[in-house]
Design a protein around this nucleic acid. Sequence first.
DNA 1: ATAAAAAGTAAGGAGTACCTAACAATGATA
DNA 2: TATCATTGTTAGGTACTCCTTACTTTTTAT
Lengths: 128, 128
Amino acid sequence: MISASLEDYLEFIHNTILEKKEIKAIDISKAFNISRPSVSEALIRLADMDLIIYEGRKGIKITKKGIEQAKKTVKKHQILSDFFVEILMIDKQTAEKNACKIEHVIDDEIIEKMKKYKESKLKNNEQS
Amino acid sequence: MISASLEDYLEFIHNTILEKKEIKAIDISKAFNISRPSVSEALIRLADMDLIIYEGRKGIKITKKGIEQAKKTVKKHQILSDFFVEILMIDKQTAEKNACKIEHVIDDEIIEKMKKYKESKLKNNEQS
DNA sequence: ATAAAAAGTAAGGAGTACCTAACAATGATA
DNA sequence: TATCATTGTTAGGTACTCCTTACTTTTTAT
């Protein structure tokens, strides 16, 4: 199993590549406020797990497997955050912060139920 | 901050004392499937944090501070599990398993909203 | 072109949470 | 009472995730 930290980094790598086409180790260092050596280490671990291809200064590429993994996390994050905001009326910031932590431990089953619950709730509101 | 593991052990200590009046290190070892030395170590850390009083074979006592802490966790656990079962229709076992993990990372604010949401939902069902 | 800044790596350290093997103390029992 | 099982501790080890300090490599700017 991938750890919460590594999952966070992978998620960030994925999102950043989508947004800006590329990412460097230093970006992760800045985003998470961790030292450059810690990033190096984390990237080596992600590469060991075949989630990224890391060739030092030559750049960071995300593998197919890494994209799958990252997408799963992003989806969980999104559904959690939306559920908190739209159903529980939590403020956006708190919702995001908590989604970031819960996404690493919650089962897919609950995520799916949250999604369906939200969808049916919104449908009901349209009708009224 | 207390770690998820220590919080689990403290929760178990609290629940067991309520149920059976006393608890021994070996009970924790069996309950969580961790070695006796690991339990020793964890109990020393909990004692360092003034959450328990640990005097080896003389027994484990939970402090006032420890009870507060444990109660908070138990409450979070209960509300999460109930919310999953009653609102999201998750099966009891999955609900419990996930509550065990999420209770360590979720903010009080969301727990309170979950509780209120569930209460108002149940009230509405009574009326209909 | 060279000096300085930026980015990355290597080496070594710390804390947490586990482990096993071996030992000590306590308790039960034959 | 002597022995054996149970419980707990000590010592030493692993893996993870972070750190700092001190390098090297690359890029940038003068």
